[in-house]
Amino acid sequence: MRWKRRRLLWRSWRSRHQLRVLSDRSGKIATGDILAVSVMRNEIARLPFFLTHYRRLGVDHFLVVDNASDDGTAELLAEQPDVSVWQTDHSYRDARFGLDWLTWLQLRYAHGHWCLMVDADEMLIYADHDTRGLQDLTAWLQGQGRIAFGAMLLDLFPKGPLSGHVHTPGQDPTEVLDWFDPGPYRARRQRPMGNLWLQGGTRERVFLADSPHRAPTLNKLPLVCWNRKFAYVNSCHALLPPRLNAAYDGPGGDAPSGILLHSKFLPETVHRAAIEKERRQHFHDPRQFAAYYDQLSDDPDLWHPDARRLGDWRHLVELGLMSAGGW
């Protein structure tokens, strides 16, 4: 495991040549700041609200890698006073789905900071997030001796065909996507890294009903008190060294955890599916997922009678999808 981690760090170190600085404001980062790192590609629709949401939670600085956007994402990011942007045209897939780039940025800037790794379509929420910011959360976690905070990816979807709704850039995606599946989610631990493997949910129900073993992994460790020796292995599902994966511990109690609201199924995703299918930049074996993109292009209705309407965080705690963990 140690050598694997070193190899990953070495890859990331090498990948720094692939990045081109667009605007570097990293000098503004002060001790104790909370950072967010992200890779983006053509996210102009989600970006304004993404920034609003995380600024409200108390992220002090964003470190973003722009992967060859052509819709103005990079320009918008470069204008922001608290965002540093790098650009690259290299393959997302070859950079371990962008992870090499981000690990490099974390190595360089995030040492000793609480660092959040999120995609543009993920919004982190946790118990009491409306009244307590990330600074409050991280200080408490640190007091508890925890240095990582886990969250589950919760797919949101609208009622009716995906393209039947209107989302204007800057609008809160949860206004359009306001339904979710309360279950079934099932977890197990994986060897040898001791990471969690949580599957289930909407995408399994609709797209992968006959092959649940290929269903997407839903657990993430997005918020970590970063050390330059750490490395994410597979998106932010698993982390090395292995002890960090024990952020979800057990044996009986509720550890604190959050939810990443996943706004993948905005109306635009329908025509993007065809593009993504051609790019073949996602999934380890893109061929297996051709059917998934085809289904998505057909503008499906993901809603069904047992879906729930998204309420506030108390509802999600009550359903057992996240936990305050004694906070």
Partner: peptide, 14 residues
């Protein structure tokens, strides 16, 4: 709840 959790709930942090 922190020490015992909710009976019968299996989730990512329990």
């Amino acid at each position: 709840r922190r020490t015992w959790g909710r009976a019968g709930l299996y989730m990512h942090s329990r």
